[in-house]
Write a protein that binds this DNA or RNA. Structure first.
Length: 966
RNA sequence: GGGUGAUUAGCUCAGUUGGUAGAGCGCUUCGUUUACACCGAAGAUGUCGGCGGUUCGAGCCCGUCAUCACCCACCA
């Protein structure tokens, strides 16, 4: 059977993948021959997502590490799985519902909606997994995990409850980042601050009761620059609509301009309210007017000021960012603004202020505006009840683990970023007003009125405390919460029966009404207590933060957990260092008191060829599946690998992928050549060789193995790819195959057999070493070129090294290759017809050079197209001279060469050489250099000068001969 | 405002303890030498952003400036 002319990636990839899967080649522990484990957790992609180039890159790197370790006999697990991705998935399903004319989420209700999400997940959830398989990702697919299935929800619930019981999770009413589109709170990290063109409006707030004061402005030297009587205080704002919720105007305590009116009241325009002028450290006297309106419920800074000074908070908007129109807001939002979108309200407020003559002036200004990272709408600070994690406490161990070196972060510089974030961490808001996710395991029950407790006797009625509405029960399951609540109430002397009544309601203003927690009066000796569950779900990152232990079966102490935890390395993009990496560190360290992994390798983000982030809206997305269809998975993988330098960004282009597709073809054809020349693979062990070329290529192979291993060890994937490329194409294909041809096709059976064996071995080594990067084509060739005891995916990674290097062979091949290149170069430059065979004259060769020539004259003759060899002591007329180590060669080209052309060539060569030599000689003449530079360096330079001088002398001699010819 | 990184051949980028620069693509010339035209051979191209400094020696270390990118941040 002869190999086809090209590798048919589309056909072979599907077949090979099926064979791997069928053989269970990727299962945990497959091919393990030692006790050491190697485990990687896949960064779980969104369950309903599809593969983009970033995934392809990320998973290629992981697959390389995994395949490499598996071939080296490590007990290897690559744990796959997907993330439920709360907001993203809920959004996708809502869109789908709208598109297909279904009821909306709210119309169908929570239970029904969640059914739809699960349907959607079943339907589209397998896509990305199949795509990862096409990439060649060798995950243990039998262990595929999902953050909403199996033990995972239990793990999440248990962690929530444990943290709650330790006081590390708590509920708080405070300002959060509110997304008016999704109508949920989001964390700081999900907010993107973007600079936009905005305005700053300067308003005049009149003093109450028509009071006036003398306003005096001074320059830095204390000279008065302005003095006038004012009946107002000027404030500036970028968000005029929030003025309706102002609770005060603040000035800096040192600001003399306003000292006369501190403590007085101003009349808030448009609202029938008086608010005080207070002092606080927050206002900057040098910025704007120096006076700041304080809207505690709609601005984070103002909130802090309001808290410090006991200023009232007025919440102006509902969950959609619409000015409140509910009854409670009757006295707050003036009628004309109610029900208006916040941006509409802004226009109206500005117009109304202007109409009142209170508009001081307006300026254009670039402002930083917060946007939701998924919704892309302007985020509104909102006062709501949310669940928080005490991140500061959890951050301590996460910081220590990296500082101590227990966990390494690569590239090193990202450590600083990690430190900075953890050292300044804020409480983590983990509750989301969504439906798709892990529902908070908290139930609310009625708070019993203490007055009654004393008289409860089992038949007496009990009432609720209407002023303090609920008791909180946090437990991992309904059964547990029943037990907990029953005990709680019975401890108060009440016999109860606990029932559930669904979730507490979320009203449109975002306040959870827990008053529905209820109780019925005594029946048959007990009281019925109704519990309502907190409707919120947890931030997706709360659950994915438990990915390492959760996928291994925690909270059960499974064999996998014992064996593979802590995992080895986390491979991910630096964009989720905070979102995910830091959270995993914090949570794993808190929950199991052990780091989740020992190394974090942060790779670049993939951009398009112009360096722009790929996005659907820009239309610059390269679809990895299309690239795989066109070029094959291996070409894509090799390309990504070759560009995986530590840090930075990765710009992907189709041309480059095509180039590496060609590399695969090159390898394929080298194998094809070997096959056509009777090189049968499959022999075990490093072959013994006598021929110089064979000894040389064996050494080269050992060298590249060392380079590749070192590069993988240091996560320098691009260096491994580069070394393999240079070896396979530059050494094996360009030289070894060519040099081997005379031996393979010659008469000496001994050399022929030896070379067949060596070539088969060399190509096998190429396949093995390339396999982690290019698994498909190498597996295919492995199968087609010999009888194998096992698939290449379980091939034995070699351990040979320097002991296979043969200095003598290296030197000789270097000499031969140099000569051949020299001859080719001269021929090309002299425009000697490529087909023309010329004689080569050896000139004054020493014994070593002579022996080298004799051993390799067939090779040289063939590769340099030399017809015959002659020996002379004097260079023939009209010859071109090639200096070599131990002598020189001449090409007599008198009738073909252009003498002045050759002279020009020599002049150029000599000039270059002399430039180099002069530099080096300058150094040796420098006393400082000679006395301070290391001996090795000096010796090297001296040697190079000697060589160079010799070479220059030969060139000069050749020039003299040519001169004589003219 | 703080921080980080980048600036090297026409393009995209490597360059790991400082020893006078590399790859891929592109470009030029030549080539049906039966593995491969997704190929082969030969070739051209860089004051390594500017300016200073340390050093025998700097793309690499230090300072500074310029331009760009990204991250973080509450200036109304």
């Amino acid at each position: 059977m002869t190999l086809d002319k090209n590798f048919d990636a589309a056909r072979a990839e599907a077949e090979i993948l099926a064979r791997w899967l069928e053989a269970g080649a990727f299962r945990a522990g497959a091919n393990a021959s030692r006790d050491e484990t190697f485990c990687i957790m896949i960064p779980p992609p969104n369950v309903t997502g599809s593969l983009h180039v970033g995934h392809a890159f990320n998973n290629t790197l992981q697959d390389i590490l995994v395949r490499w370790h598996r071939m080296r006999g490590f007990d290897t697990l690559w744990q796959p799985g997907t993330d439920h991705a709360g907001i993203a998935t809920q959004l996708a399903v809502e869109k789908e519902l709208a598109r297909t004319g279904n009821l909306s989420r709210r119309e169908m209700g929570r239970e029904k909606f969640l059914e739809k999400v699960w349907e959607w997940k079943e339907q589209s959830g397998g896509t990305i997994v199949e795509q990862l398989k096409r990439l060649g990702a060798s995950c243990d697919w039998d262990r595929e995990a999902f953050t909403m299935s199996g033990n995972f929800p239990d793990a999440v619930m248990k962690v929530f409850v444990d943290l709650y019981n330790k006081g590390l999770i708590y509920r708080g009413k405070r300002l959060v980042n509110w997304d008016p589109h999704f109508e949920t709170a989001i964390s700081d990290l999900e907010v993107e601050n973007v600079e936009v063109q905005g305005h700053m409006w300067h308003f005049k707030y009149p003093l109450a009761g028509g009071e006036t004061y003398e306003y005096v402005e001074k320059d830095l030297d204390g000279n008065v620059t302005l003095r006038e009587t004012r009946d107002y205080i000027a404030i500036a704002t970028t968000r005029p609509e929030t003025m309706l919720g102002d609770g005060a105007v603040a000035v800096h305590p040192s600001d003399e301009r306003y000292a006369p009116i501190v403590g007085k009241l101003v009349h808030l325009p448009l609202c029938d309210r008086l608010i005080p002028i207070i002092t606080d450290e927050y206002p900057d006297p040098l910025f704007g007017s120096g006076a700041v309106k304080i809207t505690g419920a709609h601005d984070f800074n103002d909130y802090a000021v309001a808290m410090r000074n006991g200023i009232e908070l007025y919440r102006l908007m509902d969950t959609r960012g619409v000015m409140r129109a509910d009854a409670a807001a009757d006295n707050l939002v003036p009628e004309q603004y109610r029900g208006l979108d916040r941006f509409e309200a802004r226009k109206l407020v500005v117009a109304d202020i202007d109409a009142l003559g209170l508009m001081d002036f307006v300026e254009d200004k670039k402002i930083m505006q917060p946007f939701g990272d998924r919704s892309k709408v302007v985020i509104e600070p909102m006062l709501t009840d949310q669940w928080y994690v005490d991140a500061k406490t959890l951050a301590g161990p996460a910081l220590a683990a990296v500082k101590s070196g227990e966990v390494a972060i690569l590239p090193e510089r990202d450590k600083k970023v990690y430190y900075h974030w953890l050292e300044n961490i804020e409480p983590w808001c983990i509750s989301r007003q969504l439906w798709w996710g892990h529902q908070v395991p908290v139930w609310y029950g009625p708070k019993l009125k203490r007055d009654f407790l004393g008289i409860i006797s089992g038949t007496t009625s009990v009432s609720m405390d209407e002023t303090n509405l609920h008791e909180v029960f946090c437990a991992p399951s309904e059964a547990d919460v029943i037990a907990q609540a029953t005990k709680f109430y019975e401890d108060q002397g009440v016999r109860v029966k606990v029932v559930f009544a669904g979730d507490a309601d979320v009203q449109r203003d975002g306040q959870i009404d827990r008053a529905k927690a209820a109780l019925n009066n005594a029946k048959e000796g007990f009281i019925e207590i109704t519990l309502f569950r907190d409707p919120d779900v947890l931030d997706t990152w709360f659950s994915s933060g438990l990915w390492p232990i959760g996928t291994l079966g925690w909270p059960d102490n499974t064999p996998e957990l014992q064996k593979y935890y802590p995992t080895s390395v986390l491979v991910t993009g630096f964009d989720i260092l905070f979102f995910w990496v830091a959270r995993m560190m914090m949570m794993q360290l808190e929950v199991v008191k052990q780091v989740p992994f020992h190394t974090v390798y942060l790779h670049a983000l993939v951009r398009d060829e112009k360096g722009v982030k790929m996005s659907k809206s820009l239309g610059n997305v390269l679809d990895p599946l299309e690239l795989i269809d066109e070029f094959g998975a291996d070409a894509l993988r090799f390309t990504l690998t070759s560009m995986a330098a530590l840090g930075g960004t990765l710009k992907l282009s189709r041309e480059r992928i095509a180039g590496y597709r060609n590399f695969g073809t090159k390898l394929w054809n080298a194998a094809r050549f070997a096959e056509m020349n009777g090189c049968v693979a499959g022999a075990v062990g490093v072959p013994k060789a006598e021929a110089t070329v064979n000894r040389w290529i064996i050494g080269e192979t050992a060298r590249v193995r060392e380079v590749v291993d070192k590069a993988f060890t240091e996560y320098r994937f691009n260096e491994a790819a580069l070394a393999l490329y240079a070896h396979v194409w530059g050494k094996v294909c360009d030289w070894y195959v060519e040099l081997a041809k005379p031996l393979l096709q010659g008469e000496d059976e001994r050399y022929k057999t030896e070379t067949q064996g060596v070539m088969a071995w060399v190509l096998d080594q190429c396949l093995i070493l390339l396999h982690p990067v290019m698994p498909f084509i190498t597996e295919e060739l492995w199968g087609q070129t010999g009888a194998r005891s096992k698939m290449l995916v379980h091939g034995d990674w070699p351990t040979y090294g320097a002991e296979l290097a043969d200095g003598e062979a290296d030197a000789e091949m270097g000499w031969v290759i140099g000569l051949i290149e020299g001859i080719r170069s001269v021929r090309a430059e002299m425009h000697v017809n490529a087909g023309a065979k010329v004689p080569l004259v050896a000139l004054g060769l020493d014994a070593v050079a002579l022996a080298r020539l004799e051993r390799n004259r067939v090779l040289i003759g063939r590769l340099a197209r030399v017809e015959r060899f002659e020996f002379a002591s004097v260079a023939p007329k009209g010859a071109v001279t090639l200096p070599v180590e131990g002598g020189a060669f001449c090409l007599p080209l008198a009738d073909v060469i252009d003498v002045s052309g050759e002279l020009a060539r020599l002049v150029k060569t000599l000039a270059k050489l002399e430039g180099e030599l002069n530099g080096l000689k300058g150094k040796t003449a420098n006393v400082n250099f000679m006395s301070r530079a290391p001996e090795e360096v000096v010796a090297q330079i001296v040697e190079r000068i000697a060589e160079g001088d010799e070479e220059a002398a030969k060139i000069r001699a050749a020039m003299a001969r040519l001169q004589a010819l003219r």
